[in-house]
Amino acid sequence: MNDRHEQWQAAERLALTLIEGGLQRMSARTLAVFLFTDQESVTAGEIADRLEASAGSVSGAIKSLLTVGLIERLPAPGSRREHYRLRDDAWATLFTSQNTVIQAMLQAAAAGIAATETGDPAHQRLTQMRAFYAFLLGELPALLNRWHQQNT
């Protein structure tokens, strides 16, 4: 077995782990390609070939990964195809983009609190939910700042 074959097996295992963690199957497999490629950038066609997947499913996965900030488009002078790569600061970017999820959770908790009575157990659970997400949102900037200081 060659090293490249072992790397792609590891990529598929990583994709399975990401799927178990809640990522869509094709997004997980596409992210694994970005993590394990030895190329500076890849095209959607190259990903589709590597994964033996349809262009449409790869296109959806790329859009998803672009939306959360894990990958970025690169200029490719002379090429008619879009080129993509994993962002240098992908993981911090992903975590930062999750602030929109935290904001949505805060809003949902607030709406639930407004719709319940003070002594209601649901009201208490929703109040705790709102307090947790407010705490988390307040801690994220300092956490990301420490991460950047440690990794620069």
Rank of each mutant, 00 (worst) to 15 (best):
M1L: 07
R4C: 04
R4D: 09
Q9S: 15
A10G: 06
A11K: 05
E12H: 14
T17A: 12
I19N: 00
I19C: 10
I19Y: 06
E20A: 14
G21H: 10
G22N: 12
M26V: 12
M26E: 13
A28V: 01
R29L: 09
V33N: 02
F34C: 00
L35F: 03
T37L: 02
T37D: 03
Q39S: 12
Q39C: 00
Q39D: 11
A44R: 15
G45T: 08
E46Q: 15
I47A: 09
I47G: 04
D49G: 09
R50C: 03
L51M: 11
L51I: 09
A55Q: 13
G56V: 05
V58N: 01
G60K: 15
S64R: 07
V68E: 05
G69I: 13
L70Q: 14
I71Y: 11
E72D: 10
L74W: 10
P75E: 08
P75L: 04
A76F: 07
A76H: 07
A76T: 06
P77E: 14
G78K: 03
G78I: 12
R81S: 07
E82L: 08
Y84Q: 01
R85L: 00
R85S: 06
R87L: 14
D89H: 09
T93P: 01
L94V: 07
F95V: 02
T96M: 10
T96P: 03
S97Y: 14
N99S: 11
Q103M: 04
Q103E: 11
A108T: 11
A115R: 13
A115M: 10
T116R: 13
T118C: 01
D120K: 06
D120V: 06
P121W: 14
P121I: 10
Q124M: 05
T127A: 14
T127R: 11
M129V: 15
R130S: 08
F132S: 02
Y133A: 02
G138K: 07
L140S: 06
P141C: 09
L143Q: 06
L143N: 02
L144T: 01
R146N: 08
W147M: 04
N151S: 03
T152G: 10
T152S: 08
